[in-house]
Every structure is written in structure tokens, then in C-alpha cells.
Design a protein around this nucleic acid. Structure first.
Lengths: 374, 374
DNA sequence: CAGGGCTATGTTTCCGGTAACATTTCCGGT
DNA sequence: ACCGGAAATGTTACCGGAAACATAGCCCTG
């Protein structure tokens, strides 16, 4: 619960040398390398049954939580289970039941804050439900890589697949795929195509714009993400809507690729004829790049121009200046997606939480407009 | 291969609304929710055998790449395979062979750049070898969470476990665990405990210090990570060794927790009596925090004080000023770890690449010393 | 042209669970 | 004490592959 924000933040976690565990190591093969094999064969329900003096079926029943077992019998089974340190063999179970208690997650990136947080939330939600999440990354731009990944996923009999589609290509690829198992294609709802716009769109971005407007800004520019990302489209659309609604003026939209580099380049290109006093970037990284471009041109943030991001990555609070941004709860998105998927699998209504709130986090990269800007 | 650095960098990848795939949807349950079930039962080798007019064993043999099959027979099998769109049931296979072609990866965080890149590399390497990587995150500080995760992992019969231990607690927990399968505990080699120090320690950090020394710096301070992290210890030790070796002077070490916040706080605390002109942070985030603390105190980076990080996270190049740092190849670390694990599993010598190079990336946060610093 | 040794293919069994069906045990009522 | 029926437990079959073992077909040799 509280672990996410706790002090246990990862460091570089570098992996270089290695120790090797030995847990039944009776065998030497490589130099200095221990092999950990199971010392004794894993106990099966048959072993347990014999030890308890009952039939294997009784054990099976107990394991599945069947009620009608005499306390005395149950007692014996429990003891045998304990004594033999029984662990179910999920492969065998899934072979008969056809259910596997594992979910596949397809995503294109796990190094970025957004996707990785989503996965973290998804993974946690899955585990709470007794599932394991197999994360498969694929190269969006390479159709073959996508197919390979899908192939892989379909073989490892999964209870369901969570297809995290960020781009149109991915959505398309996923939608054209027969996963043969329940599949939930989680894409940011394309606000233009009906459905409920996200909280970010309806509340978050408008409040961000409002914040800037209240500081005196009237002329804006937006640094969008690639438009193949529905998230980028939504944000851009929400930006325009908010601008229009509040009677402000947009000096235009430039397109980056989510990276700080693109924010730097694209905004830099616009600098000579920059009429705006507020830069609204579609994510924090591009905002960072934009701020550098501005400061290198002798334009002060926030004295001359205000800059905002979206996401609130952990570093954003320590940019120079600290970045005003919208906090997005990615982990919750991951959880939600998993719950939807589990709903599909169990054919029950998933428990749907409230729309995910996005919250304005004002910091020092936005300030009252001043000076004789055009 | 080239995908890692390609333009396909993840954006926020937000997941909010959802589309649902329907691939055999003959059934309606929830409102607007399609269920994708397999239309027809998956073909088995028995089906294929019948279709090809051979025994199931022949099919099985073919699938495993057995040589002695007459071309004509093989032909028939191939056709039947094709026609029935056969996909092996890995659960059944692993039940008999006891091998599962899935690896478990235990880690404590996937949102940070380091760990996530490591996982990405590991995942890719695993997939190339025909394995799927199950990523299980656990809360390091919670012993019960660790146990639960281990329990989960041990049930889902895995071919091996990659235990990514960054902290001593984790190393300890992992070493005290009987995974029953080959397990490779990947911790950054503790340089103090023998073994080959990493490239970062032997070449990277010394060259970083040298870079600073060449700019005239003589007095240093180090912002270390938590000392329960072997990576933090190694970096601190390497820092001290390099300082000593080059006849420089360390004004001390302060301890952060890898976050920008800690860099800000800890360096801020030292500011009043800061004798150093160069700050060497153990990662880029802490360097970022430190730079903010400095600039808020009117100390210019790099004019008054130089700051360096380690890792070279993507944003580092766009900090204000852009951060001089050491680039670390995390993905390669993940690959290596997987290869070691596969070596254990197959009882063969893993193919070991060269030590992972770390490279100095000089940027504008370091500069020639000047002014009347004490 | 029969017999020996391969080679190609088929049959049976097993892996560790679950499901369906069969049987025994227990219990209350008369 | 006996009986019926539900409750508790046991038996058998099956999931989809792979391994062990069995057998049929082939070529070559003497």
C-alpha cells in the first residue's frame, strides 16, 4: 500500500558480478558455479495421500477447499501436507483445468516511467488475485517482433492477455490478433471516439490551463507527443478544448516524441518567433527539454515563460526550476486494466473504481506573467 | 538490436478507457464487454496425428526435431500441422519434461531506470533463448511480501529464477531461500569481497574523477546511495580509491537514498560548510537534487561547483545544466544475468561477454574550477 | 533368399493434477 | 436392529504431451 512512495526507491540496482545460490548443490560443474537442483523430488498429492492414509482425491478436494471432509480426515491431510512440504504443480493443474493463473502483458517499453508504473500496478493487482504477470516487451515498429511475441504468448497457456496499446499500430496489431484467450486491449480511451473522457482530459488539463491563465498567461503553445499515441491525441485535444473554453489563444502545437531531446529541439525551433508565454508539454521529459532550450536562449523560466509538464515523474520536483505538472496515477491504471481483464476471464463484472484523478502540482516553473512579451 | 535507442521511446502510455477484443465472441455478458473465447478447441498432437495418418508419437518426434523421419512422412505431418494450426500446449509439455521454458525474475522495483533497463535486457535475452520472463516485484522492506512472492514463484514451475538483489536484505532473503530450481542471484559484485571489480569501479569512476581533477578540482564530496546497496558501497569505495590514488582530497561522504529528494536534502545540509568544489553523486537523480540545492543557494554549476552523476538516465542530458555522468549499460547487465542463469539451467558454461564498460559522458555540469573557493 | 541389424513408426505408460462416477460410511427414524 | 439416503471417501479416466519400449519395414550379406 504505502510501499510505492516509501523510501525503498530503487537505486541503480546494478548487476555485475554474481553470487550463485546453492540449495541442493551436490554437484559441481562449472568453476565456482553451484547448481541448485531439488534435493528430493517434489511431493505430489499421491505422496501426500499415502502419507495421510487417504486417497489422492481427498487431498485434491481439500486443496480446492471442498467442504465435506471430516475434521479428523482433514487433520491428517493437513499434517501430511505440512510434513512433506507439498507444493502444487501448477502445470499439471492447468493441464486439466485449462486455466493457468497467469496473465500475459504486452507492452512496448518498460523503461519509461508511465509504462513501468502501469506494469507495476498491474503486476501487483494480478498477484493479489493469485495470478502471475508475464511481461512481454515488443518492438512496436517491427511487425515481426510483434508476431513473435504474440506467438510466444499464445503458447504459454495464459488465462488472459493484457495488451497495453499505446500507439495506433499496437492497437491495430492487437485488434487483428486472435489471442484465443480473453484479451483486454487497454488503450487510452480515444476521447474523440466516444466514451467517457479521462479525468486528465476533463479536469486535469483544464485546471492546468486555468492555473496558467490565473497567472496572466494568454498565449500558449503545446508540445505534443507523437499523434500515433492516443494519449498524445487526447492531451492535445484537451489542450485545445481548454484553451478555447477559457477564451485563450494557442500559438500552435509542435510535435515531439516524448523525449527530452525532442522537447529541446522542437521548442528550440520555435524560439525565434515564439509568441507564447506559456508552454504546455504533453509530458515532463519534453517540458524538461523545453526549459533547457529556453534557458540557453536567455529566456527565464518562469519569469519570461512558464512551462508545464504532465505525469509528475519523480525527478520533476527537482528540475531547475521545479516543474509544474499534472500528477497521473499510472499504477492505478495498471490495476484497473488487470481488473477488467479478470472480469473478462471470470465472466463477472469487474470492480470498477472511480475515474482516475489527475492532480495539478504547482511548482516554480510557472509564474505570473511579466515583462513586455509581444 | 537498434530498437533500444530508436525513436520509439515510450510516452506516458496511459491506460484509461478500454477497448475489448472479440475473437470468438458468441456470448454477451457485461454491458459492452465482449468475451473472446477460443472458437474451436485447440488442436493436439493426436488431432494432428490423425489428420496426417500417423501416430501421435511421430508428430511429437517431428516437433522435437528428431531426424529420422522419412521425408514423405514429414511432409504429411507438416501439412497437418499447418492445416490444423497446431500450437503446442506448453503446460502438458512441461508436465512431462519437468522443464518449463519460463524464468522468474525477482526484483524490487521496475519504475527506476536501472532496474527496468536491466529487466528489459533480461527479458530480451530470455526471449531469444525461447524463454518467457516472469517479473515479480516484491517489497524489499516487507519480509512477508518477499515470502509470498517466493511462494508464488516456486509454484509456477519455472526453469530457473533470476534473483535481482540490489540490497543486502534481498541478497540475504534470496540466499536463505530454497528455490528448488536453478537460481542465479545477481547482485552487484561486492568489490570488497574479492572477485573482479566492475568496469565502473575500475575504469569509469577513476576516469570521472580524473576528468574533474583535470579541470582543477581538488576537493570533493560524494553523495552515496544507501549502504545496504552493494552498488552504493562499490561506488563509494571506488570514489575513495580514485580520490586517494590521484592524490586528491575528499571532504566527506553524505548518504542519500537514490532519490533526487535525498540529493537535495543531504547536499543542502552540507552547504553552509561546503569545502568541496566537486560533487560526485552516486546516481543522476541525486546529482539533480544536489544541483537544485546549489542553485537555490546562489552557487553556480559549474562555475562555482561541478556536479557529476552516474547512470546517464535519458533526462540527464537535459538537466540545467546538462549533467556530466557515467553511462552504464544496464540492459547488458540483464542479458548477462540471464545468460548466467541459462548456463546453470543447462549445465553449460554461459557465454560470458566482456566486462561491461562504463563510459564517461562529459557535459556542462562540470567545468574548470575558478574563483576564490576555500 | 533367409537372417541380421538398422531405421522408421506404433503402443503403452507416465507426469500430477481434476472430473466423473462408484462405493463405503454414517446417521436418524421406525 | 434394519434401512434409506446423504455424506464422506475411493476408483477410474482424462488432459496433452514425452519417454520407454515394441514392432514393422528395409537393405545388405552370405
Amino acid at each position: 500500500m504505502h510501499a510505492e512512495e516509501a523510501g525503498a526507491v530503487a537505486g541503480p540496482g546494478a548487476v555485475a558480478g554474481a553470487a550463485t545460490t546453492v540449495s541442493g548443490g551436490d554437484d559441481e560443474s562449472g568453476p565456482g558455479v553451484g547448481i541448485s537442483g531439488s534435493a528430493t523430488r517434489q511431493a505430489t498429492i499421491y505422496d501426500v495421500a499415502e502419507a495421510a492414509g487417504v486417497s489422492h482425491q481427498t487431498v485434491s478436494r481439500f486443496l480446492r477447499g471442498f467442504e465435506g471432509i471430516r475434521p479428523q480426515t482433514k487433520q491428517r491431510v493437513v499434517e501430511a501436507l505440512e510434513r512433506l512440504n507439498y507444493r502444487p504443480n501448477l502445470a499439471a493443474r492447468s493441464l486439466t483445468t485449462g486455466q493457468s493463473h497467469r496473465l500475459g502483458a504486452l507492452t512496448h517499453e518498460i523503461s519509461q516511467v508511465g509504462p513501468s508504473k502501469i506494469l507495476q500496478g498491474a503486476s501487483a493487482a494480478a498477484r493479489e488475485a493469485g495470478y502471475l504477470l508475464d511481461i512481454v516487451t515488443l518492438d512496436v515498429s517491427d511487425r515481426r517482433s510483434i508476431d513473435e511475441a504474440l506467438e510466444l504468448v499464445m503458447q504459454h497457456d495464459l488465462a488472459g492477455v493484457l495488451a497495453l496499446a499505446s500507439t495506433d499500430e499496437m492497437t491495430e496489431a492487437f485488434e487483428g490478433t486472435d489471442f484465443r484467450v480473453p484479451a483486454y486491449i487497454a488503450a487510452e480511451q480515444d476521447d474523440a471516439r466516444g466514451g467517457h473522457p479521462s479525468h486528465l482530459t476533463t479536469v486535469g488539463l483544464p485546471s492546468l490551463i486555468e492555473h496558467l491563465a490565473s497567472l496572466g498567461h494568454r498565449k500558449f503553445i503545446h508540445i505534443a507527443g507523437p499523434f500515433t499515441y492516443s494519449a498524445a491525441r487526447n492531451r492535445a485535444r484537451a489542450y485545445e478544448a481548454a484553451i478555447a473554453q477559457q477564451g485563450l489563444h494557442s500559438e500552435g502545437i509542435v510535435y515531439g516524441d516524448w523525449t527530452a531531446s525532442s522537447g529541446y529541439e522542437e521548442l528550440g525551433r520555435r524560439l525565434p518567433h515564439l509568441g507564447a508565454t506559456a508552454v504546455v508539454a504533453a509530458n515532463d521529459q519534453m517540458a524538461l527539454g523545453a526549459m533547457l532550450a529556453l534557458s540557453e536562449s536567455g529566456i527565464s523560466v518562469p519569469d519570461d515563460v512558464s512551462v508545464t509538464g504532465i505525469d509528475d515523474i519523480p525527478e520533476a520536483a527537482y528540475f531547475s526550476p521545479p516543474l509544474t505538472t499534472l500528477r497521473v496515477d499510472f499504477a492505478a491504471q495498471g490495476r484497473t486494466a488487470v481488473q477488467e481483464l479478470l472480469g473478462l476471464i471470470n465472466r463477472t463484472e469487474p470492480l470498477r473504481g472511480p475515474a482516475l484523478p489527475s492532480e495539478l502540482v504547482p511548482r516554480r516553473s510557472t509564474g505570473r506573467m511579466r515583462g513586455p512579451q509581444s
